[in-house]
Design a binder for these strands. Sequence first.
DNA 1: TTTT
DNA 2: TTTT
Lengths: 128, 128, 128, 128
Amino acid sequence: MLNKIILIGRLTDDPELRYTPNGVAVANFSLAVERPYTNQEGERDVDFIDIVVWRKQAENCANHLGKGRLVAVEGRLQIRSYENNEGQQRRVSEVVANNVRFLDWPSDDRSQQGQADNLEEDDIDVPF
Amino acid sequence: MLNKIILIGRLTDDPELRYTPNGVAVANFSLAVERPYTNQEGERDVDFIDIVVWRKQAENCANHLGKGRLVAVEGRLQIRSYENNEGQQRRVSEVVANNVRFLDWPSDDRSQQGQADNLEEDDIDVPF
Amino acid sequence: MLNKIILIGRLTDDPELRYTPNGVAVANFSLAVERPYTNQEGERDVDFIDIVVWRKQAENCANHLGKGRLVAVEGRLQIRSYENNEGQQRRVSEVVANNVRFLDWPSDDRSQQGQADNLEEDDIDVPF
Amino acid sequence: MLNKIILIGRLTDDPELRYTPNGVAVANFSLAVERPYTNQEGERDVDFIDIVVWRKQAENCANHLGKGRLVAVEGRLQIRSYENNEGQQRRVSEVVANNVRFLDWPSDDRSQQGQADNLEEDDIDVPF
DNA sequence: TTTT
DNA sequence: TTTT
């Protein structure tokens, strides 16, 4: 009934952009999100979380993001089940983003506009 | 750096309560969370999300929750990687809850106290 | 850059539905949200939070919700500043909801459809 | 019953640090959070949201944050009512933070440790 | 009272 | 398969 996730982390690699047969853009990337505590070795564990973005934001991400960039992702957690070629049930979990905010724009970079586009065209909050 | 998820859904079964070798309580259950839209067959898909709860809240959940109950879960998404007996890498994703709220108390049921305990002893918000 | 709030609480009164000059529906209600701890008197303080909902969901709320009903609200916190008739600056804070979920449908009530409408027509998550 | 807010924005000024009579640290600052859309003038409205932080994190914020810094705040929305000297009811709304993450560390700055402290000592997520 |  |  409600499924909301908010993540802040860094891309582990450049986003991969593809198109569905009907021409809808999809981007995938993996986000490294550090855990809020240090483990017994004094290190901080990391969750690597798969992100999926659709349509215009997919293209914005592909155009403006890259490995190591810091982003905030808002979306929902989706669990897909499928059967692999050996006939076994597998589950894939990924975050379907409805919003990706770019948090570390290089200060001299005018691609800031990328994010503005992102906000104006794909954001979902009502304007009132 | 930030990893926050909030879910509302129903337990697919009774919680399973266990204890670690050091006596720490852990409860596991699966939550059915309906997607916010209907699919092409006019039905609503469902994500089945594994929840882990620790310590006193684990016992509260085991004592007061059961199959079909409606709850709100607040926590973080955790991805664990492990190697199975065939030496293949597998990933498990689960939500580690730091708070479980019971949303559909039978109105004549005094076990409401279970939730109060839960709130007073395990909640993390500062009292100021 | 990001402003997301999720509340679960009960309406303190029936929603008030109005229309803007251009015919856009707006509903207002106040939500009682208990704090997660008990105060020095052993009671639970309550925050009374003003909610604003627009368009179809405003009408759904007005038609199906009433005083005492339990809801989950997802939205953003908005602070409006204005000058009162004495020329003093005042600030109003309210939560602009983009989603209101009804959590305690009377089990024999078919108005459940109200919520379905709500989900299908106003929800913002992408269907992929 | 549930009250969770997540904000990303910039401090409008340096935090103010004070201590309660019992010696508990409190920091206050105002956060400028841009709305996700542009208004009719093509500008982006901003919500100025008051933040309160307690204890060790208050001191971390006072020591490491300043005007213009980018942060993520996780907390709850609190509405306090009081009577002013003219005997009128006034309401104050503020976000009580249980976590403040510093998002734009100057890359050559070793005060990064401030945030680590913050995470290790005040964070609330369970380590399992 | 307001930030980039 | 993994980021600073």
